[in-house]
Nucleic acid binder design. Structure first.
Lengths: 262, 262
DNA sequence: GCCTAGGTCCCGTTT
DNA sequence: AAACGGGGCCTAGGC
């Protein structure tokens, strides 16, 4: 079988899996196991899973994933940098993945295997684009009226004692405005975060306005916001995206014009 | 091939995969694909991934996972309840997973496939044990000296205006003690949470002690704690676990004695 | 290494 | 269905 491609074996013998592991994982391949296993975890917490049918994926970076039939989240896992060992013990195929600092160990005990597969995945990361909070900030900087007419952003990510302010600037009357941006519905925590920033600034700056900018806000959060004398500004995410895409299109044109290939 | 077990095909034809999908996913099976694909996501955000070698897992609950060679987290995914469609388009194998409310869609376009596998995983959930914040609370209730000698817990989860207090009680001098429990290293947020609870109680109760109980605490959090006049108490998680296991062993014995099979 | 902030967080539980 | 809290959150970026 072409070693650059995948190999797969149905109902493999445990001995063959151990052998396959030695030959493939060392070569930076991914190994996929399907079968009945129990799982024990010890480390930051403890967890113990009775035997059940699961998919186990061992990646070349040391990540280990144990998935059941449902859910996006693995029922158990081990982070990158962990070291995997495979052995046969009491007629079971035992995978033991360990990392130190903090010490963590996962042991999966297979009583039966219906499938093992190995395959090579290129590690080189590919290009990825995303719209996140950072992108919304970009959009507001490009179009400050998204916050309010006359708003002039001064800088982003001003460090204050307690953390980082998303965005701040001056309103049309020259008053300092602190803006907390949220990509999703704002909750009480977002309000408290803004309040904390406000408190740490009013000491030194006197009157400051605080604006929570988000696509929506929970009822409790809105009540708390009013109680604190802060303001809510609805942000249209779709508008942010269209602002960004048109802006990025222009930048690309500029880049091409100047021969910028970065 | 036994339909209850796994089937796997190396370098499958796209047509066969479409056929396999129709026969297996309907039967509550999991499908695993390995190959070169690009990914587009639109929904709560936007993301776009250049073509690269990836593992795609489609679960019977509608979850879709797209994994690359590294990391525990999928590079892209779709939550349970999504609906998967597979078709051939422009000589590519196209997976499209959609959910509504909120609308989200992931499209994976395979230009090549090195492996496809299907397997049946029982869905029935199995027993799972964990040490969480709740378990630590149990341990402290069983052994209050974990907080300090002479500490007497009164009740748990006292509702206050701002939320729930993890634990409270009286110290040896009869003073009210509010305890904030953390399973992991306590950060500034934990301190602020405790402070918030303190504030909402000192109004009505006068002098109250506040204790942050955690296995460790960040430097900044400790500074803030001192600033607020609160106290830190180191919790030994291992000790909590041993207290719980011995306690649960006793309970099991009691249960057996009374014929309790729950 | 520790710490901070964000996430298409996911997920269970409560309202 | 929305909201809230917890997580072995994970991961990326600073320092």
């Amino acid at each position: 079988m072409n070693p650059d491609m995948a190999s797969a074996f149905v109902n493999p013998r445990f001995e063959d899996v151990v052998e396959l592991f030695r030959r493939s994982l060392a070569e930076g391949m991914v190994m996929i196991l399907v079968g009945e296993c129990s799982v024990e975890y010890k480390g930051r917490g403890v967890a113990s899973l009775e035997s059940g049918s699961r998919i186990v994926i061992a990646k070349p970076d040391g990540s280990l994933l144990i998935h059941a039939a449902t859910s996006v989240e693995p029922v158990n896992w081990q982070p990158p940098g962990s070291k995997l060992e495979i052995r046969i013990e009491d007629d079971n195929l035992v995978l033991s993945s360990t990392r130190k600092a903090p010490y963590e160990n996962v042991i999966a005990r297979f009583i039966s295997l219906s499938l093992v597969a190995v395959c090579k995945l290129e590690i080189k990361p590919r290009f990825k684009v995303e719209i996140g909070e950072e992108a919304i900030r970009e959009a507001v900087l490009a179009e400050p009226s998204l916050i309010e007419d006359g708003f002039k952003p001064i800088s982003i990510e001003k460090p204050v004692e307690v953390g980082f302010i998303d965005l701040y600037g001056l309103d049309r009357d020259g008053r300092l405005v602190i803006v907390e941006l949220k990509r999703v519905k704002a909750d009480v925590e977002a309000v408290e975060q803004l309040k904390t920033y406000m408190d740490s600034l009013t000491d030194s700056y006197g009157s400051v306005r605080g604006i929570l900018a988000a696509p929506s806000i929970t009822y409790k959060a809105y009540m708390k916001l009013k109680e604190f004398g802060l303001e809510y500004r609805k942000i249209d995410i779709a508008k942010c995206i269209s602002i960004l895409t048109s802006r990025r299109r222009q930048q690309r044109k500029l880049g091409e014009y100047y021969g910028d290939k970065s």
